[in-house]
């Protein structure tokens, strides 16, 4: 992902044991989040492009139970 400087590369981590299926992440960023048959959060993408980062941050902030985190993406690719 060339548009995203290495220092800013993030990936989505979901902590499904926290999830209460509020659906907030899907409301905020439907292109990034979905849910499984039980209603639990599923990330549709893991490694984020620069364009997706703001939405991912909003979704993480909107989660009422801190089930979404953004981590540094250490595995860089050219």
């Amino acid at each position: 992902m060339s548009e995203n400087p290495a220092s800013l590369r993030k990936k989505i981590k979901t902590i499904r044991s926290n999830c209460i299926a509020s659906g907030n992440c899907i409301l905020v960023a439907p292109e990034l989040f979905s849910h499984d048959d039980e209603g639990l959060v599923v990330a549709r993408v893991t490694r984020l492009s620069a364009a997706q980062l703001a939405d991912a941050r909003s979704a993480a902030a909107a989660c009422p139970v801190a089930a979404i985190e953004l981590e540094d993406d250490v595995e860089t690719e050219e």
Binding site: I20, A21, S22, G23, G39, P64, V65
Partner: peptide, 8 residues
């Protein structure tokens, strides 16, 4: 805190 649509 409930679950799904009507979670708190």
């Amino acid at each position: 805190f409930g679950y799904a649509l009507h979670s708190c």
